[in-house]
Amino acid sequence: MTQTTLTVNGQTRTLEVEPRRLLADIIRTEFDVSGVHIGCAHGVCGCCTVHIDGIPRLSCLTFAVQCDGKEINTVESLGGFDATHVLQQAFKSEHGLQCGYCTPGFLMTLAPYVEKKVANGEMPSDEEIREAISGNICRCTGYHGIVAAVRKAISNQLEGQQA
């Protein structure tokens, strides 16, 4: 057991953790967070993507003990119960989700991407957006609505800046 202090969505706890416990499991069981989904547990599908100190990372390839002292954010921290984040709203209007299982992973992969593009004032091509999500698998939507949602989230904010 290794003493580990984790801050998940602002809640800090110090736990005795067995080293082999995956971060995804600890977030889910110890912090009762359900927005981290395990799709493959071998680092291919992206469902378990969370932010560690603001950077997207696969929580199925990370041991909780490696995150001592780190800030971890899950999809719950993006836009709360009402899913108010601009990207969440765009996923809704563009039908970027169906069963919802892969959705938190896509959102956590894409939120910093969208933020960066908006900060740089860039509208990426569909090809670039598709590459940005090449580490996430969605089995329901065919990615079409997801690409449209990213486009919309970026263009809405770029237009907002101009106005």
Binding site: G46, T49, I55, R57, L58, A132, S134, G135
Partner: peptide, 9 residues
Amino acid sequence: IGHPTIRRH
């Protein structure tokens, strides 16, 4: 090499 998340870590 891989995907953005893999390239990052």
